[in-house]
Design a protein around this nucleic acid. Structure first.
Lengths: 255, 255
DNA sequence: GGCCCTAACTTTGTCGGACAAAGGGACGAA
DNA sequence: TTCGTCCCTTTGTCCGACAAAGTTAGGGCC
């Protein structure tokens, strides 16, 4: 029979990690609210009793995690992590794991259908206005594949927003970010691609406005199947997402 | 008419950020492969021509992003970001955004159904063996809510794995991590909770083995509805996920 | 009194150097 | 060969320093 343990495992984390953990704890448990100032590096040096270099390493960790950021005057304050930034981390991970477009397609089918269902059920007038505005802009840039692809990405973000479900919003984003560059390629290569894309968006807005779930789901399916058909003219669905696609995700992250 | 621009915007990012970006680029575009050594801090000092403090700040950024890590002897090497670690960042974000359990429930319903559908279609013998093993362990710890909740979380990770869709695996994880602590509470508070949970798992494994999609979806629905009923005995679905839940996610991240 | 401009102060980003602790490798002894 | 020891490297941390950019305070001007 083993002895009752006398000692707890000791915490051997490096100091910068402990600094980051301590600040993270205060933010996550709500004692520091988003927007609250964190104090200057010198303040933290005094509070934690470690060197400024150590503090700065801890700050980098939190900054990268999106928990704190620097305002225009570079002062530190807590903030709400932004979905698009976090999602781009995930997109990056998916690329490194070499997921296939088939996985992307299948997951997106599920996620986008769930989004439209939520949107049909709960979209507000404001959501609809945003979507309509997006549609108008899409029509205006029909001849510009890059701009159209960007509009398409934004359209689906808006649909997800209209679902009023932030978990869904977050869950769909990583896959969606990887779609974006291929959409541009498809619209460039397939003549009827642009008009079909915009037509699908119009039907989706209509379905949301009329609260017609079935039509919404139908057109989401068609929209994604269109993407698939277009993509398969270029490459196989079983191809893994390639590294070049990351450039777009990186650009999106900085925005 | 505006003049044609003579100059490109110059890059004013701080040096540590440039260091991180440069290394990230090499990893993401594949010139440095997961597992490859990055070199010592001193090497990087020489290569980038900046101070070691600056290099170290850049390293922290990449480390937090999961792109590089240190092995047993603390040497740096590139690595594949781990889903569970990234997902816990997202879980943390969801908590800070104060998402409701209703959002969590709705999104999970979609994601877990998609997982089981994929698993029914594509699960391998090995997946089934893992699931069966998990079931056995669950039965063994029926009296221990914390252990059972952990088994439940693992079960659904295994189902997602069996779907062979890594995008789905990643998408479901943040929401799933937030479920875990409530499962423990429910199993503790509701006497028949544990047995029902294990029974549902048994039916799910059975459905996967027999490739019976309908039954799989049915039991996933029931399983989640059970959770919902249990949860509603404790609190309203419209309550936002609270800060205390993060403690579990944090523990999971370090693992 | 209110507003603008300058000067002093703060804060950040970066640098150079320093040292203890821990790990790895080489070298010699058994 | 295996073991133990010594040395070197690497990391984590500290100290002090400085330029650039931002902030604050004070004084002069309307």
């Amino acid at each position: 029979m083993p002895l009752a343990p006398l000692f707890r495992p000791i915490d051997v984390a490096p100091a910068y990690q402990k600094v980051a953990d301590a600040i993270e704890r205060e933010i996550v448990n709500g004692r520091i609210k988003p927007g609250d100032p964190i104090g200057t590096e010198h303040d933290l040096v005094r509070q934690f009793g470690v060197n400024r270099s150590t503090i700065r390493e801890g700050i980098r960790v939190l900054e990268e995690g999106g928990l704190i950021s620097r305002d225009s005057s570079r002062r530190l304050h807590a903030c709400l992590p932004r979905y698009s930034k976090l999602a781009s981390r995930l997109s990056r991970a998916l690329v490194l794991h070499e997921v296939t477009f088939r996985e992307l397609y299948e997951a997106s089918m599920t996620l986008e259908i769930a989004s439209i269902e939520g949107a049909v059920e709960r979209a507000t007038e404001e959501n609809l206005a945003d979507l309509t505005d997006n549609l108008a802009r899409s029509e205006a840039v029909l001849g510009d594949p890059a701009a159209l692809a960007e509009c398409d990405a934004e359209f689906h973000v808006l649909v997800a927003k209209a679902s009023q479900n932030r978990v869904l919003q977050l869950a769909r984003e990583p896959a969606a970010q990887l779609f974006y560059p291929t959409t541009e390629m498809i619209v460039t290569g397939v003549a009827e691609g642009g008009p079909r894309l915009v037509a699908a968006h119009r039907h989706l807005i209509d379905a949301i406005r009329r609260r017609d779930c079935e039509v919404g789901v139908l057109w989401t399916r068609r929209h994604l199947q269109d993407w698939r058909r277009g993509f398969e003219r270029i490459a196989s669905l079983d191809r893994s997402v390639e590294h070049m696609y990351m450039e777009h995700a990186q650009a999106a992250r900085r925005r």
